[in-house]
């Protein structure tokens, strides 16, 4: 760690306790909000253990133990779907974080110009494009309207490669979806890193420049290590959600195309599809709870690992 200019946070002097109480005042709005809007509705999680019916509602419906959990865990597809969920999320998370980091480092090289601002706005924009529009654009590229070829296939035929029917090729889709995620989130993630870069003292760079370090050297040996805490936080937060599929994007793109399920079906899409007509709150809640609990274990493990190897960036 090159962070000479930044005193590691662990060495911070702790405030005396009356001051601590005053400080606690600042947390009151946040604590109040979490208690009412986040923890209040959590009472509704009991529905995961209930045989829900509409008239009796969440709290009046009879208990049924773990019956709601059986549905998903005993289904023959559970293994494939869990593997897909973990694999795709790991891909999405690492690719979008790396893209965000690289973009931030490189944007940082473009200094003070209108061009930088323009580029920053431009790469932020994909975040706003709705999944349905992404899906339309992908079709234009991969299959063309009405399945008539598509831009990519036209390109392939120009360079004498065989055309592919992308929407019936399951193997390609984890990578296609990853590219979509990088496009969607690269700019968004880079904003977070850019804000963190501004916190780095200019003097560190000046000192390095005097030592004759190149810009690449500085990016790699000064900026990147100082961004590690932010990267660590983003990574841990992402790991906690690793059991939740990216429902909106995957569903809008893959829809009900069963041919692609072997590589693209994740827990959320599977549950939505199988329960959309039956609409059973109990089973849906049970699967959600299962995802949360597993996520909780993952994140606890991640935090422990992080505390062991890189304590400064731990969120705890």
């Amino acid at each position: 760690m090159q962070g000479k200019a930044v005193v590691p946070a662990t060495r911070r002097r702790r405030p005396s306790s009356p001051d601590g109480l005053v400080l606690l005042l600042l947390a009151v709005p946040g604590i109040a909000w979490f208690s009412v809007f986040a923890y209040g509705p959590m009472a509704g999680l009991v529905v995961a253990f209930k045989d829900f019916n509409v008239r009796d509602g969440i709290f009046g419906s009879p208990w049924n133990g773990f019956a709601n959990f059986r549905y998903f865990l005993t289904s023959g597809d559970a293994v494939t779907i869990i593997v897909n969920t973990l694999f795709l999320n790991a891909l999405f998370l690492s690719a979008s974080l790396l893209a965000g980091l690289i973009l931030a480092l490189m944007l940082n090289e473009i200094r003070g110009s209108l061009y930088r601002r323009f580029m920053q706005s431009t790469i932020f924009f994909p975040y706003f494009v709705s999944p349905i529009v992404i899906s339309i654009m992908l079709q234009v590229i991969l299959s063309g309207v009405g399945g008539s070829g598509g831009a990519l296939n036209n390109l392939l035929s120009v360079i004498d490669l065989p055309q592919l029917s992308w929407y019936t090729e399951p193997g390609a889709w984890p990578w296609i979806l990853t590219i979509v995620k990088v496009w969607q989130l690269g700019g968004y993630t880079s904003v977070i890193f850019l804000a963190a870069i501004t916190a780095i003292s200019e003097e560190v760079y000046e000192a390095a420049a005097i030592d004759g370090a190149s810009r690449a050297r500085m990016a790699l040996s000064i900026t990147t290590p100082l961004l590690l805490p932010t990267l660590g936080v983003l990574l841990v937060l992402g790991v906690g959600r690793i059991f939740f599929g990216d429902f909106a994007t995957i569903y809008a793109i893959v829809q009900d195309n069963g041919i692609l399920f072997p590589t693209t079906d994740v827990i959320d899409t599977y549950v939505f599809r199988s329960l959309r007509t039956i609409g059973d709150f109990g089973t849906t809640a049970a699967i959600g709870l299962f995802q949360s609990v597993v996520g909780f274990f993952f994140v606890t493990a991640a935090v422990l690992v992080q505390r062991r190897f890189h304590k400064e960036s731990s969120i705890l």
Binding site: A9, T10, R12, R14, P15, G20, L23, L24, A27, G30, I31, F34, F37, A38, Y39, G40, P41, M42, A43, G44, L45, V47, G57, I58, L237, G240, R241, F281, T284, A285, G288, L289, S292, G295, F296, V299, I315, L316
Partner: peptide, 27 residues
Amino acid sequence: RRLPWISRPLTVFAYVPMLFHGGLVPL
């Protein structure tokens, strides 16, 4: 601020809702 007895519990307190949701009906 890493206040003893405050910051760490608050971290968990603020983190848990990222994973656990009560769902639509209770809200």
